[in-house]
Design a binder for these strands. Structure first.
Lengths: 205, 205
DNA sequence: GGACAAGTGGAACATCTATTCCACATCAAT
DNA sequence: ATTGATGTGGAATAGATGTTCCACTTGTCC
């Protein structure tokens, strides 16, 4: 690849990162190209589909997402590890609206990110089991509750981003208290893993 | 107004009610007209702005929303009244995606609905005070937490409507347990009423 | 049944966005 | 410096959607 081409590729990635963070995954390609200071053709030659662009832009964020589970597991206190994980991931959503979309919308989003998502899900299982075994996380907490939280948080983050950028902390604060074993009362059945998978796979919107 | 015109007006309202319920407030005007079996001009003559249409379609839903606070107040148990209210309003969102939008998006939505919203907010204040006085609702619950719940629920409802239509019950179950005084631990500050107002007034999306 | 105000459908216009195309510019190997 | 592969910008195409316009139709009142 020619040196100038590589430079332009980076400029597109930077512009896309910015715009996705501000406006979510549906930022317009023309606007990305404009902000990058290149023609639209340049964008499309490097990233023929939207997925290619999204995959490239969020590769590092997804790596951080996977790393978050590992760090949570590194915490000697299982409950603190769990709480820290939830807070951290929700903060990542608050900091980047595009990333909030990536976490709550699998299709038609980059295959490249899928692997990371699966790896995160696996580590998450261990984290939850450990927290339950410690007695602090309620026994009826389900894996599927995690994407449920992420979806709820994504809604709050999107709606309050400008007017009340910390509102999500309040929601997460309530939820974490509800997850504590001491607060446990019977709950409605969680969605099945398959249902939740399909919800995440829904075509945009 | 001519009799046939009145008939067409009803057909437009019915079609809009259906489409808004299925697809949310951003259903296309052309599609509404098509489903109603009338030309687009007919729709626009009766409802020159989107607001006029939205206001007419959701007038009765908003009335039901106001009535929900009254019914909650009619419940002799303040805590049950509160819980029933939250569940009921969230169910209304789940049953009608357009209504979920109306509740979480003030602008550019119908002025006509604004009055109802304010009336509901007033009755809600009484409901919350009563529930707190009973000792079952935590003292640090804020008025602003109600729209926060509605926003979170709207996100879940929108995302899981097809794949896991009951997922919202799980979220609401957790939240209600977190609202119980017995579970109370310190929380992040709630957004100010003014912040929350501005979040609801955000231009669509 | 005739007249005319009221009402109508759908074409037309204005925007917006994604995507493709191509005449021209630039790089880098020689 | 030449050359040709590589890369470029922006105009053009295509497909949505909201909104307006107007030649034609229909209801209603006499």
């Amino acid at each position: 690849m020619r040196a100038d081409a590589e430079r332009n590729r980076e400029r597109v990635l930077d512009a896309a990162r910015e715009l996705f963070a501000e406006e979510g995954l549906d930022a317009s390609t023309n606007e990305i190209a404009r902000r990058a200071g290149v023609g639209v053709a340049t964008l499309f030659r490097r990233f023929p589909t939207r997925d290619d662009l999204v995959g490239a832009v969020f590769a590092d964020r997804m790596a951080a997402y996977v790393a978050a589970t590992d760090e949570a597991l590194a915490n000697p206190d299982p409950w603190q590890g769990f709480c820290g994980y939830i807070e951290r991931v929700c903060r990542m959503q608050a900091d980047d609206r595009g990333f909030a979309d990536v976490l709550t919308l699998t299709f038609p989003t980059a295959k490249a990110l899928e692997d990371d998502r699966n790896r995160a899900a696996e580590a998450l299982g261990v984290l939850l089991d450990r927290a339950k075994a410690s007695g602090r996380l309620r026994q009826d907490f389900a894996h599927q509750d995690v994407p449920l939280i992420l979806i709820a948080n994504a809604g709050v983050v999107t709606a309050t981003r400008n007017a009340a950028p910390d509102a999500w902390k309040r929601l997460v604060g309530y939820l974490i208290q509800a997850f504590a074993a001491e607060a446990a009362h019977p709950l409605p059945e969680p969605p099945t893993p398959r249902q939740m998978y399909r919800a995440l796979m829904r075509p945009t919107n």
